[in-house]
Design a protein around this nucleic acid. Sequence first.
DNA 1: CGGCGCGATCAAGCTAGCTTGAGGTTGAGA
DNA 2: TCTCAACCTCAAGCTAGCTTGATCGCGCCG
Lengths: 146, 146
Amino acid sequence: MNRNDIIPIGVLAQRTGLAVSAIRYYEDRGLIASVRTGGNQRRFLRSDIRRLGFVQIAQKLGLGLAEIERELAALPNGRTPNVLDWQRISRSLRKEIDARIQLLTRTRNKLDECIGCGCLSLDRCALYNKEDRAGAAGPGPRYVLD
Amino acid sequence: MNRNDIIPIGVLAQRTGLAVSAIRYYEDRGLIASVRTGGNQRRFLRSDIRRLGFVQIAQKLGLGLAEIERELAALPNGRTPNVLDWQRISRSLRKEIDARIQLLTRTRNKLDECIGCGCLSLDRCALYNKEDRAGAAGPGPRYVLD
DNA sequence: CGGCGCGATCAAGCTAGCTTGAGGTTGAGA
DNA sequence: TCTCAACCTCAAGCTAGCTTGATCGCGCCG
């Protein structure tokens, strides 16, 4: 159990709760790296558990893989985030969340006005303002709107 | 200009700001209905402008087309929402938004704890709790996780 | 009554984030 | 040494919400 700092994909999957296929996908995307055995099987570092942990948390906060990729790429020579990195990153995540909450709150206020007037008018309704397009970023692709 | 309560798809598109293709798609989905001319062209009611207005607003509030479909289907014989309907519906939308805000707020609080401890531990991290899966519903399909 | 702009119908494509399947290889334990 | 779970590589599929393209038909204006 000495050289167990190197693990196969199945173990990594178990430890992170991710599907094997998802991990392979992340590798394709460049979120994580592996070395290969003689027989072409992936071997990961134990620290990758943490790295994928970060990925999952960031995802839960609403970041897309592309953004997560960027955050990870910003780390010195692609290391897995340590405590200090994490604090820095999570502070920036906090800002993201704050922004989302604010947007939603503004939307809610407008909706309240709307309940009052019941207008539903496309021209006048406050909910219908361009600036808030993509407002509460719903499911599915939204880019077309922007 | 008397019987202009019946309009072709292009006009409806212009008045709602939607693409013609989107409107056809909505019709396929059953969100809106049309009659056909002798030459098989769609004709819509002027009131459908309002109906699609509702669709767009609801979408901005983060509802998927399926949910919107349900709301619309709940109206007596598929009429377009009038002021009273709208007030009822928007109150229910408000609840949705409130829930989202709460979820995000809880997530933010947990993140704050995390900034303090910097643990990033998958077992212990508060951000990693099953109950909050799909937490801040990010982009892309999430159903697989649930 | 001729032209061309608007409309119609498929099928396929695109984004995000993966999963599933087919078909074949590796490698650790009995 | 043999076995079989675990691994490999593509390619294709799925959800959501549309768009794009190809190839047509309709209909209004002059």
